[in-house]
Amino acid sequence: MTKPTVQPDPMDHLADALVEDILATPPEVLLAESGEDHGDPRALAAEFDRIVTSSASPMGALKVGSDVTVPHVPAGSAWQRSADHPSWWRVGLERLWQTLLPAAGGRLPPWGAAAAVCLLALVALSVVAALHWEQRGSSEEFMHGLTPASTQPAAEPSEGLSRRAVEYLVLLPEQPNLEAALASYRNLQGRLPALLAGRDPVIRAGAAGDHAYVAGIGPFTKADEAKDFCSELKRTGAACHVGEADR
């Protein structure tokens, strides 16, 4: 389907005017607004920190924190793509390619391009092999947010694979796609604001196919806490079960 040419609409103009005003507002006024709206002048700054921490966590080499939460995953987004493919090595290869080009004066002869492709392939293989054998823990940590959701918590954590303590999630029923998983969480959040207001869902890949996803709540540090929360949800008629966050 061909995308229509899109002209700015009234809401685009409004968004720009709102942003113009936000940028023109003195710092102390903005923080006071945050205090008025949320009871804490730092509330929005704290939310910013949470989002940055969880956004940065799947970046492998760039990663600093190890937050488990993956709040929202727009379909087809860079965020989703970065989870599907370990982009840090792809970015590395792109950078190497960009380094080779200027070194060759901006263009490579045919044999040079072929040699560069071979070199890149070799580098890619060595990077993948090295990571596979030397950083298995990191790779699993990188992908853990999108591995199939477990339906039952394991009895004991596997030592050596993770340095973190075992954490638990309350998982909602698996959905056929990401939108449905997000919608299932949003529906529940709308129905149960007392329990879920302000909580971001943890999105996990489902077990029933490439596009299946599960929305979860947590992580909880103790299985009992997760079970209690799940029981509370069940009392309101919601379906859920407890799973291990790292599975």
């Binding site: 968004a15 956004s55 929202h72 970065s82």
Partner: peptide, 21 residues
Amino acid sequence: TRKTRYDYQDLFHEAIARILE
């Protein structure tokens, strides 16, 4: 101000993801 199902957290996440990627 968009007619989309995504909210501001999604937008901010996506921005950070595109920059880091």
